[in-house]
Amino acid sequence: MTSDAKPAGAGGTASQDGYVKVCALTEIPADGALGVEIDDTPVALVRAGEAVHAVNDICSHAEVSLSEGEVYNGTIECWLHGSCFDLRTGKPTNPPATQPIATYKVKVEDGDVYVSLGSGD
């Protein structure tokens, strides 16, 4: 699923701290993922309980959209071959993936989600 974040991310300007408004928090499914594009970068936004994470939306093993997979136990699972990635670090937690995915900084303000494509925490 792709939100309307592409125009905001691609056409909007980042704030002074590098964050771009991507979507409303309510657009991200509870304990699920939402695929968006920010400046032509595919990003999976994930709600895991109260936390919101942003990771690159492309599996490092099979190059398919991670936002179409399952979210559980602090990971996002690639639907094609079952590799899981830690939402905090981007590191794979099981094969066949061996390479991490990028993570991005997220902040939530007034019900809106902002992402910085700079290195994650």
Rank of each mutant, 00 (worst) to 15 (best):
E50T: 14
C78S: 10
A8S: 15
T75Q: 14
G12H: 01
P29S: 08
A14Y: 03
A10L: 15
I28M: 04
V55S: 02
Y104R: 01
T93M: 12
E63Y: 06
N94H: 06
G82R: 12
V52I: 11
E109Y: 00
N73E: 15
A54R: 01
G12C: 06
V108K: 09
K107M: 13
N73M: 09
V36P: 02
A97F: 09
H53P: 08
N56W: 12
C84G: 00
D39T: 11
A48C: 06
D40V: 06
A5E: 12
L80E: 15
S116P: 00
A102Q: 10
L66G: 04
D40R: 09
P42T: 05
I76V: 14
I28Q: 02
L80S: 13
D86R: 06
G11K: 03
D4F: 13
I38E: 06
E77P: 02
G18W: 08
Q99D: 15
P100R: 04
L66A: 01
I76T: 13
V113R: 04
G90Q: 11
L34C: 08
A24F: 01
I38P: 04
G35P: 01
G11M: 12
P29C: 09
K91T: 12
K105E: 15
S83Y: 04
S116Q: 08
H81V: 10
A51V: 05
H61V: 04
D17A: 14
L87D: 07
G69D: 06
P42I: 07
E77V: 05
W79E: 07
V20E: 12
I58Q: 13
E50A: 15
K105W: 00
P95G: 12
N56E: 15
G49Y: 04
A51N: 14
A97T: 08
M1C: 10
A33D: 05
E27Y: 01
S67T: 11
E37N: 13
L66D: 01
C84V: 05
A30R: 06
Y19V: 04
R47T: 02
Y72P: 00
A14F: 07
T26F: 02
L87V: 03
G49V: 00
P92L: 08
G49H: 02
G120D: 12
A62M: 07
D40A: 13
D4C: 06
Q99F: 05
L45I: 03
V46G: 05
T93L: 15
I101Q: 07
L117H: 03
A8G: 03
L34Q: 10
T98P: 00
A24L: 08
V52Q: 05
Q99H: 11
L45F: 03
H81Q: 11
C59F: 02
I28N: 03
K91Y: 13
E63K: 12
P96N: 12
V43R: 01
G35V: 01
V113Q: 11
G11N: 13
V36M: 05
I76A: 14
E63I: 00
D17G: 07
A97C: 08
D121T: 09
D110R: 11
D121F: 11
G69F: 05
T26I: 12
G32S: 10
A97S: 12
R47K: 14
S83D: 03
C23F: 05
L25T: 07
T75M: 14
C59N: 03
E50G: 00
C84Q: 15
E109T: 06
Y72I: 00
A54T: 03
L25A: 14
G49I: 01
